[in-house]
Amino acid sequence: MSVQNLNTFDPFADEGDPLGSTQDVGSQANYIHIRIQQRNGRKTLTTLQGLPKEYDLKKLLKAFKKEFACNGTLVEDEEAGQVIQLQGDQRLKISTFLVQEGIPKSTIKVHGF
């Protein structure tokens, strides 16, 4: 017994694992992550990951280096894409810099201890 009208679309149809194919399950892709990493001694590295595409990372890096008086580099990563890497603990400086440039604070996540 089948009523045509009623079984045109089954919302519970098995479509496989809906989350299987997508990579961003519980995605943090929209966030800008600022992390810190320890090096030897008292040295640290700060990494900035997940900036939106519209920003020119090269120019941003230049501005960072000048503003924070530190060295830094642009690293290519398979997962994270381009990552800005700066010497020293620049997390708070980066976040205030980005906020001043008009990036909403809620999208910036500062990690670390």
Binding site: L19, V25, G26, Q28, H33, R35, Q37, Q38, R39, N40, L45, T47, Q49, V75, D77, E79, A80, V83, Q85, H111
Partner: peptide, 27 residues
């Protein structure tokens, strides 16, 4: 594959962020 946090006192249930290690620089 998703963590859910369910509250025992108010009964709310929500998914929480997965823990992701970000970019690790070469040290």
């Amino acid at each position: 594959r998703i963590f859910f946090m369910s509250c025992e006192s108010c009964g709310s249930r929500r998914s929480v962020n997965t823990i992701k290690t970000g970019f690790q620089a070469q040290v």
